[in-house]
Design a protein around this nucleic acid. Sequence first.
DNA 1: AATACATATCGAAAAAAGTCAATGTGTAAA
DNA 2: TTTACACATTGACTTTTTTCGATATGTATT
Lengths: 101, 101
Amino acid sequence: MRNHAADAKVFKAFCDENRLQILQMLRNGEKCACVLLEHLQISQSTLSHHMKILCDSGIVVGRKEGKWTHYSISASGSEYAKHLLELLTTQTDSAQQTDCK
Amino acid sequence: MRNHAADAKVFKAFCDENRLQILQMLRNGEKCACVLLEHLQISQSTLSHHMKILCDSGIVVGRKEGKWTHYSISASGSEYAKHLLELLTTQTDSAQQTDCK
DNA sequence: AATACATATCGAAAAAAGTCAATGTGTAAA
DNA sequence: TTTACACATTGACTTTTTTCGATATGTATT
């Protein structure tokens, strides 16, 4: 039996336009928050909020280095999301139509 | 250049616990709304709202038959979501670290 | 030790999403 | 042509999410 709340959390990473824009940027390689911020029309605290959601979902990982935090797409997190998507949308072996009551 | 709003819409299907529970049920085969409703702790109007979001995302399709609407997971919609997920999480060929400002 | 910088956290406001009861619409049976 | 049923839509309310400015925290430089 799946934990729907935990599963939903993974996909929340992809449910916001700003987060998709962030992911788009990270596809080109690791970026620190200050660089991401330069390309977005949001405040620093809002960016920090989105990065937290992205990291909590497992799709992004942060690497602290001195004053900076470098973010990148997590290969394992992405694979897990794909696995989950497969799981959620694939018919079961015994799939059949259910009669109305 | 991707349409982030449209992409986000696809993944919203997977961002709510009730919708994940609905998908879980549909994995076992096509179900009409009344059957889904029997297994959920939500009102009929709320279910209708969720089915609209699921259908709008392309993950679910509805088939009207007399008084009933039979819902099922769309194979093509699911494939599209997988394709999108791949697109959003895969590094580009030229991926590289970007220096801080 | 003082300052500057990068990022996180807090608290409040605004926007979006989820929820329900009531009502509307379309279909079939009586 | 009533009546009953299945589902959609509306409007109001609640909850969650997004957003920002202000402030805190940690790190490096002067």
